[in-house]
């Protein structure tokens, strides 16, 4: 069984975002790029399954320019067997999904994993669009993935509860919190072996985007915090009722 993890390259989650060119694009100066946290957790789970002998190989793919290779190599360093990069600058999630779907036609994976959203565009779109374009089933809100005796068992969150499912490949799972506990830190040996692992660059077919980001802005800063005396707890509820009108 082979797993493919779709990865997005995003600014470190603690980044203070700024925009440039008349607020039309992110100011990338000084930004540290990381593997999208949810994709990293997906990768972590895939590697755990590989370590347990439940699957044979883990590959990762990213759509992006050459600068995203650093995060692909990190994926190799923490244990992925092969990395792919579709060489394209994309404008929306649809374009990414189309490029992935076209590439996927010549590939054979049993399980595809995508993080629930990227921490930059937060659209939760690429995974599901990829499955729809590739014509394979998808399961969302997946917080657990295990393979027992060749059977794929998924745990997913539903409103107010959880569900255990038996899935039949190939399928795509959109994974979220719970899929793995903590991302792996690459070891020196892993970093060394990553040097000789394949990172294949694939040229992109032309695909048109369906949406465009026209402008960005920063939200209004919040007014200052009004402090309430800890000895006067009733005052808080009076303010919430009379001033904020939320209770």
């Amino acid at each position: 069984m082979k797993i493919l993890v779709c990865m997005s390259n995003v600014p470190d989650t603690t980044t203070k975002v700024r925009f440039t060119d008349g607020n039309t694009r992110l100011d990338a100066a000084g930004i540290q790029w990381i593997i999208n946290p949810w994709d990293e957790l997906a990768l972590t789970r895939a590697l755990e399954l590989k370590d347990a002998g439940a699957i044979s190989a883990v590959e990762v793919i990213n759509v992006g320019p050459a600068l995203t290779e650093a995060t692909l190599r990190k994926a190799l360093a923490i244990g992925a067997d092969k990395a792919w990069r579709i060489d394209a600058e994309t404008a929306d999630g649809y374009q990414v999904a189309q490029l992935l779907a076209q590439w996927l036609k010549d590939q054979a994976f049993d399980i595809l994993l995508a993080g629930v959203e990227s921490s930059d565009y937060n659209s939760s779109g690429v995974g599901i669009m990829l499955a729809a374009l590739a014509g394979i089933p998808s399961v969302s809100n997946v917080s657990g993935l295990s393979i027992e005796g060749g059977q794929v068992i998924l745990k997913r969150e539903i409103e107010g509860g959880q569900q255990q499912l038996k899935a039949h490949g190939p399928f795509l799972a959109v994974v979220q919190k719970g899929i793995a506990l903590e991302p792996r830190i690459p070891s020196m040996r892993g970093i060394m072996t990553a040097r000789t692992k394949p990172l294949e660059v694939v040229p992109a077919h032309p695909v048109a985007a369906r949406t465009a980001y026209q402008a960005f802005s920063l939200p209004q800063p919040k007014g200052s915090c009004r402090m309430v005396d800890p000895e006067q707890p009733d005052e808080l509820f009076r303010l919430l009722h009379e001033e904020a009108r939320v209770i």
Binding site: P11, T13, T15, K16, V17, F19, S119, D120, Y121, N122, A208, A209, R210, T211, A212, Y213, Q214, A215, F216, S217, L218, P219
Partner: peptide, 13 residues
């Protein structure tokens, strides 16, 4: 966008 750190105006083609 950016997990609530910014707002974006999106145009649909």
């Amino acid at each position: 966008v950016y997990s609530g750190k910014a707002l974006a105006t999106v145009v649909v083609h």
